[in-house]
Simulated scan of single mutants.
Amino acid sequence: MLPLALQHARVVAVAPMAGGATTPALVAAVEAHGAFAQLAAGYLTAEALRARIAETRALGASRFGVNLFVPNLHRIAPSDYEAYGRAIAADVARVVPDAAVPPLVEDDDDWEAKVDVVVEARVPVVSLTFGLPDDAVLARLRAAGILTLQTVTSEDEALAAANAGVDALTVQASAAGGHSGIWTRDALPADVPLPTLVAGVRAATPLPIVAAGGVASRDDVRRVIDAGADAVAIGTLALRATEAGTSATHRAALADASFDRTELTRAFTGRPARALVTPFVEAHRDAPSGYPALHHLTRPMRAAAAASGDASLVHLWAGEAWRAGRDAPIADILDDLEP
């Protein structure tokens, strides 16, 4: 059974989506509809996160979570970084003329300061992605009365998280859009259907499970619940919600019939993430592992392309079920899926 902080009237929750898609308005609308949602702290400064927590509460929400990126650097050799910068230079120049390869940046996404923020704000739930935090951080969150929800992509990760003392798991299948939460450098998540993955994790640990990745319909939700999940989270299907902050370029691409598939790619950030396949994705299938260095390298290109409406150079995060998405209020999208 889900811990009290995760218990809501509805089985289907909304996953946190970094980069602007998850807004305080989206989180508040989800909670008002009786479901669980989380703010995405990834790429925000600690002060921006503090402001978003306050804004979400001002909109009437109180039972939401915050998702943090656990530092899990996939360090890249300077020579490999420079080589990839040269490999994408022609693409970058299309939207950022005269751009030079920026200095290599390896950072921890303001980790310690964001942990301070969530503890001070006493948010009910903190979810953790990309790796397992150290025991001291988990103890600090526990002491603050904050429930911890750890993203895992395999039975081994689930067991490690359970042994570390987390409260619940987000079990993420490879079909999920955006970044995989896989912990291991230079690895891809196993291509396992979500119900199968959930069943394996359920056999390995009694921890409560929120399942995510490739959910497209009410029948999908039922299958995942039958496999042992306590709740199901959607991400890609929420990108076209009225309340989401998804860019116009990304929204249009998700509805564009010319896109015919997704795949896991490192081309934009240096760690595996599922996106709609574009010529940029196809041309850089050999992109090196290097997170967050490649994220910082491609960020100016992605931002300029999104602003100009050039979807070919945007990280069009999308799960395998992206065609099931529609433009609608999040309440209607959740109603479509509730079993």
Rank of each mutant, 00 (worst) to 15 (best):
L313M: 11
G270Y: 06
T23N: 01
K114T: 08
A227H: 06
P208V: 00
I333V: 12
L239P: 08
V166W: 08
P71I: 03
V27N: 00
G235Q: 07
V198F: 06
G235V: 09
G60N: 06
F36S: 10
W322A: 04
S62V: 13
L138N: 09
F259Q: 10
V314C: 04
A40R: 02
R240K: 12
G200R: 14
G325M: 01
R299T: 14
A100I: 13
L313D: 09
S180E: 08
D109V: 02
A29E: 00
A32M: 10
I330G: 09
G200E: 11
I182D: 10
M17L: 10
A304V: 03
A306W: 07
L147N: 05
I182V: 14
Y291I: 10
H315A: 15
T22F: 00
A61V: 01
V12F: 01
H284M: 11
P288E: 03
G131L: 03
R185T: 15
G42D: 01
A252R: 12
Y291F: 15
P189C: 00
A15T: 13
S154K: 00
S154A: 00
D110Q: 12
G270S: 06
L337A: 02
G60E: 08
T236V: 10
A32V: 10
A244D: 07
E320F: 07
P208M: 00
A40G: 08
D256P: 13
L132Q: 07
L294E: 09
W183M: 05
R261E: 12
A175W: 06
T151M: 10
D91S: 14
A328V: 11
F69L: 10
P288L: 04
G19W: 02
S312P: 15
L254S: 02
G228D: 04
D186Q: 14
E47D: 15
L207W: 06
S174V: 15
E320H: 14
D108Y: 01
A227G: 08
R261V: 05
A40K: 02
A267T: 08
W183E: 06
S79E: 15
R218D: 09
H296M: 05
G235R: 07
G245I: 03
D335E: 13
G214D: 09
T249S: 02
G60Q: 06
A233Q: 14
A48E: 15
T129L: 13
L39A: 01
P103K: 04
R285K: 10
D310Y: 02
H74D: 13
A233C: 08
F268I: 08
G309F: 02
